[in-house]
Design a protein around this nucleic acid. Sequence first.
DNA 1: GGTATATAGTTAGCAAAGGTAATGACATAT
DNA 2: ATATGTCATTACCTTTGCTAACTATATACC
Lengths: 153, 153
Amino acid sequence: MLTNHLRKDLVANLRSDAGLASALRVSLTRLNRRLRRQAVGHSLTPTQLATLAAVERHSGITPGELAEHEKVQPPSMTRVIAALEERGLVSRAPHPSDRRQVTVSVTDQGTRLLKEERRRKEAWLAQRLKELTPEERAVLRQAAPILEKLSRN
Amino acid sequence: MLTNHLRKDLVANLRSDAGLASALRVSLTRLNRRLRRQAVGHSLTPTQLATLAAVERHSGITPGELAEHEKVQPPSMTRVIAALEERGLVSRAPHPSDRRQVTVSVTDQGTRLLKEERRRKEAWLAQRLKELTPEERAVLRQAAPILEKLSRN
DNA sequence: GGTATATAGTTAGCAAAGGTAATGACATAT
DNA sequence: ATATGTCATTACCTTTGCTAACTATATACC
């Protein structure tokens, strides 16, 4: 009964653009909270994991670039990197040309953890996706890049 | 250049279902962080706002139900309700039949704030949506109920 | 060349928001 | 009547973000 009310509100509002913004915001917030909970008990927080993945993809990236990439302030990124380094998942090295800067790279251990973590990190979401119809999945497949775009500046 | 890499990764991965889960998770996390930042300076946090809206929709709801609805643990909800009550936006009353429980209702002031807040609460997202193509918006319009569904149990 | 300004990363201190464990009051089952 | 269960709350801790301030280095300008 609770959910039915919500459902109706959502559908009704969706016709307008403001309604779309509203519905999206609510859904995003709740889904994210849900996702976050899945990380409990796992080894890394979502932000640490995302950062580690970004470091893997862009080896030699600087903290500043990482901060921008993850939409976080530099001090926050410093802490994330420190936590990852402490666990031996990434390593810091001086920047070749600019001694103010630092480069960050993933270690073997980081790569391994990433691989291992990746398998189970989407377990919950993948399971939920499996419960959708192929059409619904197709919609999300189209939506993912757009959501990604929205998060960019 | 950084974003281009990301773009490519996303698109490449999206073909598989596991890739969809992965891409969605990353996008959702980042977008949410973005959204959260927009709330700074506003009067209520996203969770408080969502809770207030839920209370408005389901007048007389109990803290436990609210916690479940917002996917939060009961103690967290207690705090959210306390914050809202302190601002005079909701009120607590004894449950009619079960004296362990409590009912929560929105006050006039809460309704007013909700209306006011709603106007500007999606400003950022709405602005971003405006920058999308009509086709992209159409995709999100389809996606919103599916994301909502995913966040339910 | 030397001084001023800008930039990258970090450190320090703070706040928000969530979680678990424990508690108290009440309800329910045996 | 007693034991167990449930709801809300309290107490305490953790995580993770922020801003402001600091240090080291780079760059611009005179």
